[in-house]
Computed example of a mutant assay.
Amino acid sequence: MRFDTSPGRFREAHPEDSFSGSSGVLFEQAMAQTRMAICLTDPYQDDNPIIFANRAFRALTGYEEEEIIGRNCRFLQGPDTAREPVRQLRSAIDTEEVTVVEMLNYRKDGSSFWNALHLGPIYDNDGKLVYYFGSQWDVSDVRAARSEERHARMLARELSHRMKNMFSVISGIVNVTGRVRGIEAEAAEINARIQALGRAYETTLDDASSGTIELGQAVRSILSPYDADGHRMDLVGNGGRVSFAAISLVGLILHELAANATKYGAWSADNGRVTVSWLPEDENGQVKLSWLETGGPPVDVSMIGPGTGSAITDRMLRTGGGAIERIWNRNGLHAVVTLPA
């Protein structure tokens, strides 16, 4: 028997069921007019054929109504349709269960699309199975986005592995050169900077596919060796992202500040503390990072001069479009670093 989509027509399959009266008409009209692709099948006819397909279903698949009605939904399957979701559908029909699967389907023109198919039984008021309901949603774009994200994460992990190896090789070269030339102290100082760079990138590469890095994640990784017991440093921040290229700046700057605090500043005293705080991007497209030392030895401003580390970080910041302001308070340094977001 052929059914069209006008109100009341697909009720001919089961004239004794409860889909009658005004509520049944409203139900049918809603099914026909919704933008979600919907079809109904008749489990009492041979091969459970489609007896109703709304306009959205026809638009999604490219088939006309007369090409759909009376056929089993499997006509949308094709050469690359996986067997497992098909098996799940058959099992759900056999046991009258609700299921949701994603499967590759094909349109009339031969083009494929990923179909998130929701299948479930419809019962009348007496609990008797009347129809099977299927709603279809084209999730091809969602699948593509998932695939791109997985690919980006795989590349990030590979890049992380290679960068770790690269930093290890560079560190080894510096150590050997230092021993050969009798400049072990200078080599150790250079290696400390290399290790800080490595920590800056180590835990942030998985996030790099977005083009920006969460600042707090990098700060924690870089500074963790300087406060192993967690009692001499406070990290305060929520949000704030910087460009992937700026992470090297963050690594070097925080290393120089931490090294200075260990030798001369707050961390050279028993009760010295450092508070590192940061804020999300401001209206100027910048992120500010604050380094505040307290409880350290008294600062003699007249004895402070430019060091190698300061010169390196200042030059790199200028090149990268950032800046640093150093405020020498009586009991410690307050540095404010501005970074491009």
Rank of each mutant, 00 (worst) to 15 (best):
G78F: 10
S112D: 14
D270H: 08
V176K: 00
M154R: 09
D126C: 01
W267P: 01
V176A: 08
P306G: 08
Q217A: 14
G78H: 12
S171F: 07
M316C: 12
R143Q: 12
G322I: 04
S91C: 07
I173M: 13
E102Y: 02
Q45F: 02
T262C: 05
E64N: 06
M31G: 04
Y123S: 03
N72A: 04
Y264F: 15
K288G: 01
E16W: 01
G211L: 09
E102G: 00
T203F: 06
A156P: 01
G285N: 05
A59R: 10
F133Y: 15
T203I: 04
N48P: 04
A341F: 09
G265T: 12
S111W: 07
L235N: 11
E148Q: 05
M303V: 00
L252S: 11
I38Q: 05
T204W: 06
L60C: 04
P7G: 09
V174L: 13
A259F: 09
V142D: 10
A200W: 07
G285M: 03
G62L: 06
G172C: 09
Y201C: 01
M154E: 14
D4A: 11
V98T: 14
S147M: 05
F10H: 13
A13H: 10
F113I: 00
L119C: 06
L129Q: 13
N165I: 09
R157C: 02
M31F: 14
